[in-house]
């Protein structure tokens, strides 16, 4: 990817971010002290089922359908073009057909639907992921 090569030149050789002296060395002790001071104990998770509003579900499904539709149309277009030997450059161009919002929606959709574990799904829902 040409643009990827272009931006590689701006990558710093060293991490420009620093931490205060001894930060990592003291972190674990401070954290465990905080846990002890507050008397925090692991808790059995009382997961409450949060029902996503119907309208929100429909918005998500509709957005996913739109993305899928665009994928299909773009895919068909690429396929037809390839068949007729008219080069459509790279799949990178196809990706550009999507807006940020569509991509974010697709990512959100996958985050919600792509989890195997029910607890994880509930966790994200309850944590307003």
């Amino acid at each position: 990817m040409k643009e990827e090569d272009y931006i590689k030149q701006f990558k710093p050789h060293e991490n420009p971010f620093r931490t205060p002296e001894g930060y990592f060395e003291g972190f674990t002790g401070r954290l465990m002290q905080r846990i002890q001071d507050k008397g925090l104990q692991p808790q059995i998770l009382q997961t409450k089922r949060v029902q996503m509003p119907l309208w929100k579900r429909w918005v998500r499904y509709s957005a996913a359908a739109v993305v899928a539709g665009v994928c299909m149309v773009t895919g068909s277009y690429l396929y037809v073009n390839r068949q007729s030997s008219q080069l459509y450059a790279t799949s990178a161009q196809a990706i550009d057909a999507f807006s940020d919002e569509q991509l974010d929606e697709a990512l959100n959709y996958e985050i919600v639907c792509g989890l195997v574990d029910n607890n994880q799904i509930e966790y994200y829902l309850t944590e307003a992921y």
Partner: peptide, 24 residues
Amino acid sequence: LLGTSVGALKASYHHAVRKISVFF
């Protein structure tokens, strides 16, 4: 880690690279 497909991640990265390239 993110529970997102490789394809979606590639697309997201590509968009980011494009924007940063335009910025510079």
